[in-house]
Write a protein that binds this DNA or RNA. Structure first.
Lengths: 192, 192
DNA sequence: CAAAATATGTCAACATCACTGACATAAATT
DNA sequence: AATTTATGTCAGTGATGTTGACATATTTTG
């Protein structure tokens, strides 16, 4: 299934002609070029994310898991020792949404829980060996895709891109992201 | 709810200490710095998209709509005269998923359908006046957010960012995106 | 023209993932 | 001792996605 695929009876120029003949086909009179450019970026962002998430799904299917499992196992793997509350803050989902997914991952031995040493109410989350394997299997194609993409850009450009992504994060969430990534010695949008 | 929020009894340095004392807390021995940098970008991409999609939801709630409605009305508004099949290719969802949402939007007079002039089987999709209003109401905060973000970058950097997003799209989908955007005179990753 | 392909719509059944609100337990803090 | 916190769990609900089958109208093709 394709977008506006030129076919025998409908070429792109046909469509353009059709559109210009149509009285209801010009809703964007009031849109400035600047806004139009932003819409292009917004749509590219949508398509990029659409494609980005598409890849892991086949792997997940073979385990009977979905994207929610992916996200949980990714963040537990990359930031071992998270509390449940931390994960809720990262994923911005409710406790019940997380609980269902987490329960499955623990029962099937992808994730294990350890009592907090200071606060024994806490359940610190770690991936098991089995979980590590799955996490890496899921991360590999995404890493590869980003490596390929970033390979097209200079170091400076790569910093621009990192800054762009960081700036898209809402202000009130940025410090949380920085704190999280600092756990692995990473500092988005400029190393200290 | 926050990420690893420093609280009275658990500071970030406490957590670091706890982590380094923990024998299961070092799963990433085999990960290269390059891969680590990619994981940072991947997570920033996730957080950026998470926050990006978050904003429209309050507006949508007041109409009893969800993100699926948003996506449909956005693309119909910005690219008037799409066929149903085109929309399926853009959103990459199944006919039934689209049908449910589209039906609601048509019934409630946000979108109208016109018989194709060449092929009368086609239902070309357009937004109504009511639909235009909603589409613009939904687009405005996103446009504003991107304008603010992009305002931090030079023209050259902005081109880098556009190219980055375009390159993240899977190769076999890029031509479709180009064809789509060409309908509005836009050419991602380099004007011709 | 008759047959095949195409565009769309629709039905039933189902899975995932999100939500809310209420409540329980254990442990820490006040 | 009372309160707050971290977590887990229950029941119910809704949005969004899936598959597969089938119907209709229309266009294209042999």
């Amino acid at each position: 299934m394709l977008l506006k695929m030129p076919s025998k009876h409908t070429t792109i120029s046909d469509q353009a002609r059709e559109k210009s003949n149509d009285e209801t086909a010009e809703p964007n009179h009031t849109i400035s070029l600047r806004e139009e450019n932003m819409l292009t970026l917004i749509e590219l962002f949508f398509f990029a994310y659409r494609d980005f998430t598409e890849e892991g799904d086949e792997i997940l299917d073979t385990f009977g898991f979905g994207r929610a499992h992916h996200r949980v196992i990714h963040f537990v793997h990359h930031y071992p020792g998270q509390r449940v509350a931390d994960l809720l803050g990262i994923l911005k989902i409710t406790k019940q949404s997380l609980a269902r997914v987490l329960k499955q991952l623990v029962e099937q031995d992808f994730i294990c829980q350890k009592e907090g040493s200071k606060d024994r109410r806490e359940r610190l989350l770690y991936t098991t060996e089995k979980g590590n394997k799955l996490a890496e299997q899921l991360a590999d194609p995404q890493i590869e895709r980003f490596e390929k993409t970033m390979g097209n850009f200079s170091k400076t450009e790569q910093q621009t891109i990192e800054k762009f992504l960081f700036t898209l994060i809402r202000k009130h969430n940025r410090q949380d992201v920085i704190s999280l990534m600092a756990q692995n010695g990473h500092f988005p949008a400029g190393k200290p």
